[in-house]
Design a binder for these strands. Structure first.
Length: 473
DNA sequence: TTTTGAGTTGTTCGA
DNA sequence: GTCGAACAACTCAAA
């Protein structure tokens, strides 16, 4: 028996049901296809993600002992490969993006017609999106009851790595030929000192997190100046580690040390949010593209290329926003609370459409994930499921004071402000001339003046929501 | 069927 | 400085 293992967002050996199926049946032919054909143009793999994918594929290729790389349309390439390699079966782990679901069902049906066994498995979620339902049999639209329902089920235990034998047909591309990693310029230079893509790196990150950062997580995860975030999201996105593995390890850590049990619960609920986002995307496939609450179609969004650019480059004049956007640009990630602050600023202070922010995050985040990204942006905008109420408008100055009290985070990413006293680190425009002079800061030269006034922007955002309400009447 | 309680992450104002 | 209320209504989920 020969089985094609179609590798997608499951770049690991352990707890990999498709690999286990293929390995148990005989020889395994592992193939990765770079598919820039079937996803809609806006949602083809983004720039930062490609860097991660390149390194993660290299790690998987090495641990498998070789794999086949192709690029193009899997609807053609998978049946061709099955035929040319004389495979009896094709197996894969499921993806949940709408275009992937459509693509995979076409392939499954086509293979079945030619007598090739095609089977898919769940490797990426604790629960399939269609399995969790409320008492009326409908999908949940509110997180708390959703997660309560999930927690009432046993978390599926992870499976071990099987023994397997790999066969490689001729005709594949070299990984480098997929041109995933940037060159000229190599904007990702140095990222490998921050991140270790691949299964081994993911396992080490989980172990380090549970060991060093879990204690205090429930409160300190909100602090961008500290290091209590798990930083597992890119590993999870590419399936280098599974939520089953994470849930099992986190529960064990919480059970073995009562001081950590609240932290472990909080961490598990973050895994729950990831599940909920996938649940929403599955049941509402337009989530990445359109307001989940159609009333928001009437919101008077602005279009302003200069403001968008200032936000993207971290030049808004609000240090907490700028620090976040620069961290994103330079490292491919941003701490969670800062994501909310920067997103709120784009949507509410600048009144630019959340889609513009979603696009930027898609291209720049190493953990760019269609479900999480879409659900997160719609949550901040207020247009999503179980979303923040519209009048919740983050104040970038008070958020800074609260969550970056010493200004360490701002000083790291906005070094031109480093010599400002803490009192003004989150609002340099409020500092007196002599304070700025002493810190060596000239506003408008070294660091921008605010591109909008907070109080006025807040009023304008609230007025915008009034217009939305009026349109609904 | 109707009712009831509840809903990730905030800010501002005025007492 | 601290605290509670207002900011809106609406929808969801379960009893």
């Amino acid at each position: 028996m020969k089985t094609i293992l179609w590798v997608r967002q499951d770049l690991r050996l352990a707890d990999n049901p498709a690999l286990a199926e293929a390995a148990g049946a005989g020889t395994v032919i592992p193939v990765y296809i770079l598919d820039d054909v079937t996803p809609p143009p806006a949602w083809r793999i983004g720039g930062a993600s490609r860097w991660w994918l390149h390194h993660s594929l290299a790690a998987l290729r090495d641990s498998l002992g070789g794999m086949l790389f192709l690029r193009g349309d899997p609807r053609l390439l998978i049946p061709e490969l099955a035929k040319s390699a004389g495979a009896d079966a094709v197996v894969w782990n499921r993806c949940y993006e709408p275009s992937a679901i459509a693509r995979d069902s076409v392939i499954k049906a086509g293979l079945a017609q030619t007598g090739i066994d095609a089977r898919s498995f769940n490797a990426s979620l604790l629960n399939e999106p269609w399995e969790v339902k409320n008492l009326s049999g409908a999908p949940f639209k509110v997180f708390t009851p959703y997660w309560k329902s999930c927690r009432a089920r046993p978390f599926p235990p992870p499976a071990r790595t099987p023994q397997f034998t790999v066969e490689l047909p001729a005709g594949g591309l070299a990984l480098e030929a997929l041109k995933l990693a940037p060159k000229n310029p190599d904007w990702a230079a140095g990222w490998e000192t921050i991140w270790t893509p691949g299964e081994a790196g993911a396992q080490r990150r989980l172990a380090d997190f549970l060991d060093a950062d879990l204690r205090g997580y429930a409160d300190l995860r909100d602090r961008p100046d500290l290091t209590h975030a798990s930083r597992l999201s890119p590993h999870l996105h590419w399936g280098e580690i599974s939520p089953r593995q994470i849930a099992a390890a986190a529960r064990m850590a919480g059970d073995s040390d009562s001081a950590k049990s609240r932290d472990a619960d909080k961490f598990l609920s973050e895994i729950g949010w990831r599940e909920f986002s996938h649940h929403l995307l599955y049941h509402f496939p337009s989530l990445p593209d359109a307001n989940w609450k159609p009333a928001f179609d009437a919101y008077p969004w602005r279009e302003d290329a200069a403001d968008l650019k200032a936000w993207q480059r971290g030049m808004t004049g609000y240090p907490m926003v700028d620090a976040g956007m620069r961290e994103l640009w330079q490292t491919g990630t941003m701490q969670n609370r800062v994501r909310m602050i920067t997103a709120s600023f784009l949507i509410k202070h600048l009144r630019l459409h959340w889609r513009a922010g979603e696009d930027w995050f898609w291209d720049t985040l190493l953990d760019a994930d269609l479900a999480n990204n879409a659900a997160g942006w719609q949550w901040v905008a207020g247009s999503g499921a179980d979303a923040a109420p519209y009048f919740r408008i983050f104040n970038p100055m008070s958020q800074g004071t609260k969550f970056d009290p010493e200004g360490d985070y701002v000083r790291r990413w906005c070094p031109e402000l480093a010599r400002l006293p803490n009192e003004f680190i989150h609002a340099p425009f409020l500092a007196a001339a002599e304070v700025l002079a002493k810190a060596g800061v000239v506003l408008g030269r070294d660091y921008p003046r605010p591109i909008v006034d907070h109080a006025a922007a807040r009023e304008a955002a609230l007025a915008g929501y009034q217009a939305l309400k009026a349109a609904g009447d």
